[in-house]
Design a protein around this nucleic acid. Sequence first.
DNA 1: AATGAATGAGGTTTCATTCAT
DNA 2: GATGAATGAAACCTCATTCAT
Lengths: 206, 206, 206, 206
Amino acid sequence: MEDKKLPRREREKLRQRQEMLTAALDLFSRKGYHNVSMNEIAEKAEFAIGTLYKFFQNKEDLYKALLLKQCDRFEDALVQAISEPDDEIGKLRNYIRVRLERFRANLPIVRLFLAERRGVSFNIKAGLDEEIRRRYYIFLEKIALIFETGIETGKFKRIADPFSLAVALDSSVDALLLHWFDSPEHLPYPEDPDSILNIFFKGLIE
Amino acid sequence: MEDKKLPRREREKLRQRQEMLTAALDLFSRKGYHNVSMNEIAEKAEFAIGTLYKFFQNKEDLYKALLLKQCDRFEDALVQAISEPDDEIGKLRNYIRVRLERFRANLPIVRLFLAERRGVSFNIKAGLDEEIRRRYYIFLEKIALIFETGIETGKFKRIADPFSLAVALDSSVDALLLHWFDSPEHLPYPEDPDSILNIFFKGLIE
Amino acid sequence: MEDKKLPRREREKLRQRQEMLTAALDLFSRKGYHNVSMNEIAEKAEFAIGTLYKFFQNKEDLYKALLLKQCDRFEDALVQAISEPDDEIGKLRNYIRVRLERFRANLPIVRLFLAERRGVSFNIKAGLDEEIRRRYYIFLEKIALIFETGIETGKFKRIADPFSLAVALDSSVDALLLHWFDSPEHLPYPEDPDSILNIFFKGLIE
Amino acid sequence: MEDKKLPRREREKLRQRQEMLTAALDLFSRKGYHNVSMNEIAEKAEFAIGTLYKFFQNKEDLYKALLLKQCDRFEDALVQAISEPDDEIGKLRNYIRVRLERFRANLPIVRLFLAERRGVSFNIKAGLDEEIRRRYYIFLEKIALIFETGIETGKFKRIADPFSLAVALDSSVDALLLHWFDSPEHLPYPEDPDSILNIFFKGLIE
DNA sequence: AATGAATGAGGTTTCATTCAT
DNA sequence: GATGAATGAAACCTCATTCAT
């Protein structure tokens, strides 16, 4: 990005911060927040523990920075997926496709998110889960808007309120992908986003 | 139940164990496994720490007992809901209704489950998450069977494979209810199971 | 002994105490003082833990009673061995023979003694080790007396002061027997007390 | 020694480790393994408990390091004592003299060894006692070799097998020195190694 | 600015002992 | 008198955080 414009010192610092976050991400996603020590992270990142604390006030802060950064990347990718000039069905297809890609590339991180989003907000005292849920809600509204538009333009039937549809679709995508990746033997591989979308498009009855 | 038939000593022990589990459930579900200490649980349950260890071999054991017990209760209620002599649509309605009831009564526990079921489950070394996922999978197959039967008897269209339908329905119910309870202002209250079922029944298109 | 004369109640109590001591001896000698719990002893003796505490004020007290009782038995056997109407050499032979018998029958207890007698008096705050060393010293003087008499009657040469001889003989018997029992492959079996006695009788030089 | 050549940091670490071991030795030898807590050791050594654990993985590890280090020092001193160019009698004299010195300087440690070597060794789970007994056995064989050589060169009579002689001599030295130091009033002070050696050299009879 | 040794609060767990029944 | 459930002090050990170098 515009890193080039920063003084060398600043760029160097960003690079170091990045290395710490990368090490932390790997460890957290494999072992969980409480089973990773700051020393472990420092060692993997090849910095002294003191240096780690120069960049992040404490363990929680590091975890928070890590998740929010990943959150950004996911959001960016998904928002782009549903922003491309396409009709509503195309947007939903794009959204599912990007979701699938992200799952494949980042299953460990995805699990971290799900834990924060759904569960007990294990891990952290500060309001990280709040923040993540808030952003998640904002994203869901974007999906809801697709349904809304589709309904208003007559492409979709109004079978439920748009936000509920967004929640249902999104959670189904999550759950189906998790099942596919956890136990591939129970489900056919979703080569095609439509295999998921059809569940909502076709209707079971009539 | 039949506790009355047990000798007084045994009944007393069960009651104590129950009090410990109740205290633990409350704490675990609010703060997460790693942010609750055994001393805290003992104090809340108003027992000495040593007494806690008389009833549960260690912290993990306590957590496991807690979750598996709740798991049993949920399963029983849900299996009963889908076993009543009813047609496929009726079974699904019952299932959603019972789910909703359970959510209302036990939101904290539900969060614990979701954490173990979905992600991370970094909470525990032993294979508790495995066990819970295994049981969850078995339950999903029961739901899948309802779809299967419905399809074979011509009540449902075969818009996707039955297990995928089960996953989608179940995760949607979870997600919708969580949203309803977390932020009631974003969604209409699901007075009627059909408000959820219709998402899958009607079909968005055509 | 004169148990018969005691009232039934008293005899019963003695029998119970005996059972407790037997259980404790087995456990202590196999696992060591600190690796045996009072509950374990109570369970093995088939009494309630409270009953154990009726008989012995605390764990230390139990251990003390146990060791002193065994001490008595050993002493009695050894004192008898050296009291029989025999000359000095015969007495020493008897003494070694009884020692060997005791070793064979009670190696675990013997180890407990040695620990208290030689070592750090691990185990116990109270002066158990003092008491045992005191009694051991008294016994050594009896052995010393044999040497003394033997010297005065011209049977033995005065190659060292009698108490030193007693210490040397006794510790050698201990050490040789321990070696024999621990690693039989390193040493010939002492079929005959003289194989030990000769070390002191014959003299290496001249 | 060559500590001077080590970087300052390393020397500092060694010094700290030494202070911890010294504190631990004093406490263990006075109170026994199970009656000393890690906090106690840390406090006596004037370090935080965490620092103690930086140097030793756990309590057992500390105890082990302590004993094996002392073992080395003793062995070195004794092996040197019997390696000097001297005849067999001279070697034995040297050996007893060094033993006596060590006793005077390190009675507490000696007690720890005796505990591990002789009995119980209930102190520790890991095979520390095995290791110590193994090394002790190897040392005894060196003493036995002196007797063997002395017998073959006609200096000693073959009054018993050489290993038994080694065991008897060594245990007698131990026992006599322990008695001298514990209760000086019972025995003459062994100014001269020969006062012990004569017990084995002269022969009581004939 | 970077380091990493030192810290010590706080976690889990055990077990000798008491005391209400 | 016998019981054994309940107690809680105290043990071992970890790890987030600080600060002198």
